[in-house]
Design a protein around this nucleic acid. Structure first.
Length: 304
DNA sequence: TCACGTCAAGCAGAT
DNA sequence: ATCTGCTTGACGTGA
């Protein structure tokens, strides 16, 4: 079974779930106003997703603004307990898988211990949000391995050392993703062997940065890093952005390219959750789902 | 109401 | 040295 998802915001709906503000204007009332907006919007998005058979969604890291910043000592998980519970119930009722992707400032393998500390605080925020929604360990927190600092070998060892210091509740949720410049899927597989961490294969990053292997071939090793409790393996699929120097981001999914990508993965006997990192988000997700239906590759998980 | 300077955080590669 | 991309614009002051 293949499910399709999209990240963070829905452009069809009027609401936005990632409203934030400047640090300089931080106040409890502004914070509460934004969080309330973001959580209500998340509810709307879940309704939209269910109606459109989108059973996979990435929750914005901006849902709780400045969640890991020292100025923020507000107990949001208590203040918003009711709506967080309501969101959690919808996620379960709709059978939607959620996850999060902390931004580039989370670097577990930095040589600067302060950066590592801040990164862990930020990861603990992501964990707290996913736990407050009563999700299980299939709701993943997806990170990159980090920098190389001119010495990739020791940077990898530093990742291992720091990862091993994390609480197990966090380790259960973390997954690593290959990036477009430094760490390939092969590097991720090495880390997974050492740590038992599952791997998100990013197809676009793979195309920019690989060791000459076929995607479908290395994917067979990648899916072995996922245990049943982790949920189906996640693949990130994105468009040409970054390849063209013109700043031309593909606005919409290109079904010809998507079909080539699907060819690679449908040969493998596994479920997949595919995150579409495409500019028009839910529109392309619906197009992709309709494409899967036409190809006979779609099963509605609710009707099974 | 709108223009526009700037926004918590890291890193690497291009310019 | 500075800018850019990364999941991607949008906050909010000042006119």
């Amino acid at each position: 079974m293949i499910r399709i998802g999209y990240p963070c915001i829905n452009r069809t709906l009027k609401c936005r779930p990632d409203k934030t503000f400047r640090l300089s204007s931080f106040s409890k009332s502004l914070f509460i106003e934004k969080v309330e907006n973001n959580l209500k919007c998340l509810l709307e998005i879940l309704d939209f997703n269910f109606k459109n058979q989108i059973y996979f969604f990435r929750i914005s890291s901006d849902t709780i603004p400045f969640a890991s910043h020292p100025v923020n000592r507000i107990k949001w998980e208590l203040i918003f307990k009711d709506i967080l519970t309501e969101i959690g119930k919808k996620i379960k009722e709709y059978n939607i898988r959620v996850g999060m992707h902390p931004d580039q400032f989370v670097v577990l393998n930095s040589p600067d211990n302060e950066i590592v500390k801040r990164s862990i605080k930020e990861l603990l925020y992501h964990l707290k949000l996913l736990e407050s929604l009563d999700t299980k360990r299939d709701a993943k927190i997806q990170i990159h391995i980090g920098g190389a600092y001119g010495d990739k070998k020791s940077a990898i060892e530093r990742f291992i050392k720091n990862y091993n210091k994390l609480p197990s509740s966090l380790k259960e949720r973390l997954v690593i993703e290959n990036d477009e410049r430094l760490y390939t899927l092969k590097d991720c597989l090495y880390l997974s062997e050492r740590l038992g961490i599952p791997i998100v294969a990013d197809y676009f990053h793979y195309r920019l940065n690989n060791c000459g292997e076929r995607f479908g071939e290395i994917l067979r090793d990648v899916i072995k890093t996922w245990r049943p409790e982790d949920g189906p393996p996640i693949i990130d699929y994105s468009s040409q952005k970054g390849l063209t120097k013109l700043g031309r981001h593909t606005q919409r999914i290109n079904l010809k390219n998507f079909a080539i990508f699907l060819e690679e993965i449908i040969k493998i006997d596994s479920d997949f959750d595919i995150m579409l990192e495409i500019k028009d988000k839910e529109v392309s997700a619906i197009i992709a789902i309709n494409f899967l239906k036409r190809k006979g590759l779609w099963k509605d998980p609710v009707s099974i």
